[in-house]
Design a protein around this nucleic acid. Structure first.
Lengths: 279, 279
DNA sequence: CTAAATATGTTGTAATTCTACAACTTTAAA
DNA sequence: TTTAAAGTTGTAGAATTACAACATATTTAG
């Protein structure tokens, strides 16, 4: 329990009568309190200024300023209006918008990510005899990246960015195998087809996509999605792909840790193998 | 346009000299600013009090109090100590740490990114006759991703993940060409060698790396770095690679916009070309 | 019902933010 | 080079704000 509103709520009982009035007012309009002066609060809450200060001290704060600062910290960031980039924007403005939109995508994704599904995915991946990553186009790159991470764990795995190879490989899978099917739109015919084949053969299919419900979902054992509106440039999915990358990162770390010390040693070995390629 | 530190960073160029001092101080010790008075800041930054206020107004805030409150909003609960993941962590905890660390990396990177260098990079890229992306290993994937984005703009470009191909291609470049050399460590012999050759032949070399000063820097016309401590799993650079991806995204958007409407049409065309690959 | 203790309000002070204006610096023009 | 204009920064002080000391009211206990 560290946010100030909860603390006020909890301390309610140990407050004097007039202080309670302050507490109630703060709880009812915290956003407004941040912008008000002590005089405003005293008037609105129908008590005197020192009472407001005494209230602040009572909840273990230094003073009124401290209350405002604490409230500001805990209040979810107003309404962040994410603007689309514009032809008139300067480079710093563009950078700001792209980065902000990326951050936002990561935030939203973490918030909406089903942790149950994440756990099931980690379970499946760490048990898997082999992992296959499927993706085409931009998502193909994500597949390659995921492969590049997971193979370090010593798990046999491969990424296919070629639709034919995906289908062919999917046909050879069984219940001991896991497929991670990546498609931002979740509508790519090739990926859907491969996922279908993989599922028919009993493999666990984990879908990584931009929305929860897509045509691909039907053939997935479970879906991890990066719900986020594309802000920076609607013509190329960027921030949501970044979020998908973060999902894959999280999966990788979780799977790596589930392997215990052994995996750490494997990762070290891989790292050491590159030693003479560097200065 | 979201957090105040980024806004300050972005506005840097449009500030007066003495206001820049304020900006630098605020960026360097934001947590301290929250607890200070105008007088303190004026003294520490070596300027006068009204300058501090003028600085606040310049970045579209109401006044000094407003600055403190905005800083407090963006600096939730002191400095959230980014913990390293642990073998005991549950999957939700891991996801939380990985995502938080990614967000943090993006934040830090935007804040420390030199906008001058970004502008120069965008200028060079949009003038380029050809763009080549070099990377090996994990950074090779970034190179592929960058290629996948930029080629849509109709600019001739290519990504090489093979060290030999990189060197050979670099030897054929001239002043009309731009190389984006990607290396997280900035210490990869292969990439350094290719960058050296490219630079010798007069090409503009843009380095994308994890730190400002690396062996690679020497052969770069300019460097864009993703300064960030790796938190989640020290054995694999993840959050900083995510930040590098964001840098490339920003470059892409900026170059795309510099091309005006023509580019928009090209992007549309590329998108439309995929229509019958989707449901 | 009175006295002590507690709770609240009034007035005043010190600190802080902010404004108006003056001094200085730079730039442009004669 | 000199002069005027514009722009930048600092000084001094006004206005606001948070806070403290004290006075008054209210409650509680004997």
């Amino acid at each position: 329990m560290n946010d100030i509103l909860s603390i006020i709520q909890t301390s309610m009982s140990s407050l004097r009568n007039s202080e309670k009035k302050v507490a109630e007012y703060v709880l009812s309009r915290p956003e407004l309190v941040i912008q008000s002066s002590i005089t405003d609060i005293a008037e609105k809450a129908g008590i005197s200024e020192p009472t407001v200060i005494r209230f602040c001290r009572q909840i273990k704060l230094k003073g009124f300023m401290d209350l405002k600062l604490c409230l500001a910290r805990d209040m979810p960031h107003g309404q962040q209006i994410l603007e689309n980039v514009d032809f008139e924007d300067s480079v710093p403005e563009i950078a700001n918008k792209v980065f902000t939109s990326s951050k936002d995508a990561i935030n939203k994704t973490l918030r909406r990510l089903s942790m149950d599904d994440m756990e099931r995915a980690v379970e499946a991946l760490s048990q898997a005899e082999r992992i296959e990553f499927y993706g085409v186009g931009g998502s193909g790159v994500l597949a390659l990246d995921a492969h590049h991470k997971f193979f370090r764990l010593g798990i046999p795995c491969i990424a296919y960015t070629d639709a034919h190879m995906q289908s062919m490989s999917a046909a050879l899978l069984n219940a001991n195998h896991v497929v991670i099917a990546i498609s931002h739109s979740g509508a790519s015919k090739d990926i859907i087809e491969s996922a279908r084949i993989a599922q028919e053969n009993g493999a666990t299919v984990i879908g990584i996509q931009g929305e929860k419900k897509t045509p691909l979902s039907k053939y997935c054992t479970l879906v991890l999605s990066s719900n986020s509106k594309e802000v920076a440039l609607k013509l190329a999915p960027m921030s949501s792909r970044l979020a998908q990358l973060a999902i894959l990162d999280a999966l990788f770390v979780a799977v790596a840790l589930s392997g215990g010390e052994t995996v750490s040693r494997k990762l070290e070995k891989v790292k050491d193998s590159l030693a003479d390629k560097r200065y």
